[in-house]
Design a protein around this nucleic acid. Sequence first.
DNA 1: ACAAAAGTGTTTGTGTTACACCCATGC
DNA 2: GCATGGGTGTAACACAAACACTTTTGT
Lengths: 248, 248
Amino acid sequence: MAMDQFEFYRSSEHEHLQQLSVDCVIFGYQDQKLTVLIPKLDLIGDVWALPGGFIRQTESIDEAALRILASRTGINAIYLEQFRVFGETERSSRKLLDRLLRLNPGLAEQVALSPEGYEWITRRFVSIGYYALVDMRKVILKKQEFDASIDWYPVQELPELILDHQEMVTHALETLRLHIDRQLVGFNLLPEKFTMRELRELYEAVFDRPFARNNFQKKMLDLGVLERLEKKFTGAANRAPFLYRFAR
Amino acid sequence: MAMDQFEFYRSSEHEHLQQLSVDCVIFGYQDQKLTVLIPKLDLIGDVWALPGGFIRQTESIDEAALRILASRTGINAIYLEQFRVFGETERSSRKLLDRLLRLNPGLAEQVALSPEGYEWITRRFVSIGYYALVDMRKVILKKQEFDASIDWYPVQELPELILDHQEMVTHALETLRLHIDRQLVGFNLLPEKFTMRELRELYEAVFDRPFARNNFQKKMLDLGVLERLEKKFTGAANRAPFLYRFAR
DNA sequence: ACAAAAGTGTTTGTGTTACACCCATGC
DNA sequence: GCATGGGTGTAACACAAACACTTTTGT
């Protein structure tokens, strides 16, 4: 988020809402692990921050979140939902920016940071938290202008995030756990066709606990939203599992 | 909310966050009905709006919501929780204000509305929705400067609200229904001591459906948070019910 | 004694958990 | 045949709904 503010400052000051931002917790799933997409800033100081940005005067907050998501992942149609607003008075990037300016001489010139820009950027910000579920295989990661890298991190092994971003991830995960059963939203994390085992392992990753194989299958099938397809022959020395798809 | 914006404009422009507001759905309970506190503006045009306001630079969003709540009800310690952000691009009071200025000649002078103030006030606003649960008996209703009245309306019989405030009430009620069981938050709507019947009737009002008397009692007592007190003798020709209190 | 409403117990059904068993597959 | 993992069935249990009955209170 912090560096996106630079980007913003260079655009028209009134193109966006002021002191209001959007931060996205983008969940992926791979190798039986729930992951979060986190860019690292191209600066000395090891700064990791959730993908975030500002809200244009001409777009709704949902559209802003979608745009931010698409700008990093190339994906547009996706499961995306707000989960909480973070509005403590101390939510400001002033300390962070001061540290970065100290560690990175020439940074102010590099980003054309004027005194007004400094004031603008270091004000208190209220941030709307969104979380998204994406199929990692469909994502084309795009570094933004100030990104050194952008990578998936297991949700239990995140780097040290700025401000209250760690708290945002925790809240997003809580909300995901509450909502995943309601509409079976988890399928957004999986490829179109998947086995029951893959679905179960996803749940185990999300809830960080095991589920009984047979009971899980019964529960999922009883929901009546899964469509059984052909079998998947992997060449392994065991019975071939069915593939499933979510029925609309 | 609309007239609070006037109030704001007359104060320092930078005392509050811009284009960001808080709107409160304040629930009460009386005569077996769930009610919502709604002020009516002292203007020609029949304008009802949820109690709302702005966020001072020096207070958190939660504190802002508490302040707004206290300013109308005199209550400070209360159950209060954000439930959703409303951020469509059309969220602006321009049409509403234009209509009010047409219907109320002299209004602009009355509120000292300058052209800059008009611009400021009719911009798009993002609003954070909070809902509160209060014991109506402890509330001392306070009209604000531009209130013609402030009253409790049954949630099913609300007057026509401005902008998307009706949608806010609907969302708040949904969230209340989801949360009332989690922590038994409903007790905020009742007096300190209450009978099982009163608790049940509250639930029936919130969910707009009947609950079986015996099963409801069993479920509530099994939660282990109710403390049974003395009996309540009403003088009615029937067995006296126990009074209960929520145990910390 | 009676009506009204509170309190409590019993049965039924449903869903969850735990355990067991059979089936398909490739070596 | 056998190891491996998938599919299904059943008993035990907990929870919720439906039904029934008893107790208290004032007239």
